[in-house]
Design a protein around this nucleic acid. Structure first.
Length: 656
DNA sequence: TCAAGATGCGCG
DNA sequence: AAAGCGCGCATCTTGA
């Protein structure tokens, strides 16, 4: 066994081969979720596919076949003989192919939706200034002035009509046109990607697609006993807190920001927070703010004010936990045996990191359907997750200080590198020392001696530590003292970010060292020197290299290595959250898990970045933290820093 | 009455 | 007028 050739070669030019298959499915959507393969009850209706000229079975026309997942052996053979598979939104096609029996580890896709997303850089996401550019197949074709779809069938599908109830010749015509459009789109994109040196980016994104397709089938598993206990506890708290809140407010709807504002500012007479000029800090539309952050900053003096602040903080957290998580969890445990799924979206974010969406689920116990995505689960609820297999462990690997290290690399910042390598460096104590105007060494000493005051200072400083990394420069005097100190301390990084801003002002775009292009068509500098996109420009390259390149590379290497070593029945990937990977692991495979984590998240990344992007990531080491426990987030973290040359530190100590 | 917008809050 | 970035979901408000 060995890694598949396309991964071993680390060469995106495989996409220049004409030995490919273009595929589109039409599925029975009667069970919802747009006919997702996750639902056992959903089924395939029709598959249409076309082979590239270099394929050994090239026929020159499109094959269409009505049938179920057991009827596509010929297609599977064609895909196995091809260098890659082309599809628009390929994760969908792949998940059905998995049900047909295809080995996803051996399959490389080229996703035309992802390629369009790469060509658009950040512009597919959209922001306050600009609507996002659609990457739907239809819009990709319209932009190129190609023939549009049959309007009748298109309207039917857009209105959610199940393809099984559309006349077969119509739906077949639609499917075949999609295949032709997809192939034509691929060829058009290929030229654009080659000429702008961005084919490698599509390669990276699409290598992840296979791993995600596999991971989405897994879902995450809840510990029924813990969920029940937590739910009852929160429900009881909710009742008690609601009673107290009603008594205090006379029964306002505390979930309404308008009613909260009236009560806070008109009844309790809180003074609104103001900016330095005296103007009140308001919401975007000019309404009075009632959020948690504001509440923490308001000066509560009367007993009623104090009670409201404390009650609202608790009730808000408890209420949110119930409506956004625990009700879903208890429904999942009671009605779905504890297992639930979510999707990973590859073409949503401006920085090309993943996003996640929940899957609409109707529970008998609750009126409204609910959904829970995988990337914002409250940390306190991670302990509710366990393995679906008795005796297995939950293992998590995350990239140590990932964005800071990536920033150090991008800025080739010597001070940042020294700090990363220095065991006596503590980022939050550094920001605390600057804000309090204290000596860092003294604070460190006191912190290590368990000084409570220093511990509090450090805790409070946490939210400020990396704000200046992303362009934050305003705030209180103390905050601004730190922001200024940060810019001076990490002067190379700051200079690099200034350079990015200059490039954007001159060209309206930023070309990163790995080739991804960001565009800010509306970038401008005011007469006071204020640059409207400065903070986004400072942030995007860091966030993107860290969580859209390095971690995805690590995840697909991890996934392939697990298969490569025959461990696929003992290590199951279940989730990935920006800088981390979460797996369910058989107790016999824990050491394998650690070893593969270390390799995939460091050495494999170095090699891939160099081979595919020509980026030599040798300025600072990458590191991983590995946590193993019976439940998610439980267990001691082990840390490994692995340098470009292979030198390894285990919990800060040189390892063999 | 219903969809879109606003607000708030969870995560990295 | 001031502003760290990136998301998705629940709830309330707004406006046609």
């Amino acid at each position: 066994m060995s890694l598949p050739p396309f991964l071993r070669d680390m060469d995106a030019s495989i996409y220049e081969s004409d030995n490919y298959v273009v595929l589109d499915w039409e599925t029975d959507t009667s069970h919802g979720d747009h006919g997702s393969a996750i639902h056992p009850a959903n089924g395939i209706l029709l598959g249409s596919w076309k082979l590239g000229k270099g394929h050994s079975s090239y026929l020159g026309y499109t094959t269409s076949q009505f049938g179920s997942e057991f009827d596509f052996d010929e297609l599977l053979r064609h895909i196995e003989e091809a260098d890659f598979l082309i599809a628009h939104n390929a994760k969908y096609e792949l998940m059905w192919l998995k049900r047909c029996g295809l080995d996803l580890h051996k399959t490389l896709v080229y996703d035309t939706k992802i390629a369009e997303y790469v060509l658009f850089g950040n512009l597919a996401a959209g922001d306050k200034n600009m609507a996002g550019a659609s990457t739907s197949l239809d819009m990709c074709c319209r932009r190129r002035y190609w023939d549009i779809k049959d309007p009748v069938v298109d309207t039917m599908i857009k209105h959610g009509i199940n393809p099984i109830s559309i006349p077969r010749p119509w739906i077949q015509g639609r499917c075949e046109q999609d295949v032709r459009d997809t192939e034509r789109l691929y060829l058009d994109q290929l030229a654009r990607l080659q000429s702008s040196d961005r084919l490698g980016l599509v390669f990276t994104r699409c290598l992840l697609t296979s791993a995600l397709s596999s991971m989405e089938f897994s879902g995450m598993f809840l510990d029924a006993d813990r969920v029940q206990a937590e739910y009852l506890d929160y429900k009881a708290q909710y009742l008690e807190l609601t009673k107290k809140m009603d008594a205090l407010t006379g029964g306002i709807n505390w979930r309404s920001s308008l009613q909260r504002a009236e009560f806070m500012y008109d009844v309790l007479k809180f003074k609104e927070l103001t900016y330095r000029g005296g103007k009140p800090q308001r919401t975007e539309s000019g309404k009075r703010k009632t959020d948690k952050n504001t509440l923490e900053k308001l000066k509560a003096s009367t007993p009623e004010q104090k009670e409201y602040v404390s009650l609202k903080a608790k009730l808000g957290a408890v209420g949110d936990a119930l409506s956004k998580n625990l009700e879903f969890f208890v429904g999942t445990v009671d009605e779905h045996k504890g297992l639930f799924h979510a999707e990973f979206n590859q073409t949503v974010t401006a920085t090309h990191r993943l996003s996640s969406s929940g899957i609409r689920t109707q529970f008998e116990a609750f009126d409204k359907p609910k959904r829970v995505q995988f990337q914002n689960l409250p940390r306190v609820f991670k302990r509710l997750f366990t393995s679906r297999n008795e005796g297995w462990q939950i293992c998590e690997t995350d990239g140590s200080q990932l964005e800071f290290r990536v920033a150090a690399h991008l800025g080739r910042d010597d001070q940042a590198r020294m700090d990363i390598l220095d065991p006596d460096f503590d980022a939050h104590l550094t920001s605390a020392a600057a804000m309090e105007d204290k000596d860092y060494t003294e604070l460190l000493q006191r912190y290590r001696n368990g000084d409570k005051w220093v511990k509090t200072l450090r805790q409070k400083a946490k939210s400020e530590t990396f704000k200046p990394l992303y362009g934050g420069e305003y705030g209180t005097k103390k905050q601004m003292r730190w922001y200024k100190a940060f810019a001076e301390r990490y002067d190379s990084l700051t200079a690099a970010q200034k350079g990015w801003v200059q490039e954007v002002l001159a060209t309206r775009r930023l070309i990163t060292e790995w080739g991804l292009r960001f565009y800010w068509p509306y970038a401008k500098v005011s007469n006071t020197g204020y640059v409207n996109v400065k903070r986004a420009v400072a942030n995007y390259p860091v966030q993107s290299l860290a969580t859209a390149e390095i971690i995805p590379i690590a995840v697909f290497y991890f996934w392939h290595r697990v298969m490569d070593e025959g461990l696929q029945d003992k290590i199951i990937l279940v989730n990935s959250i920006h800088d981390s990977l979460i797996c369910e692991v058989h107790p016999d495979a824990i050491e394998d898990y650690r070893r593969i984590s270390k390799q995939a998240f460091t050495t494999d990344v170095y090699e891939y970045l160099e081979a595919v992007y020509g980026v030599k990531f040798d300025f600072v080491p990458l590191g991983v933290g590995v946590t193993v426990g019976s439940h998610w987030s439980e267990g001691e973290e082990e840390n490994y820093d692995i340098f470009y040359d292979g030198k390894t530190l285990h919990n800060g100590v040189l390892a063999a």
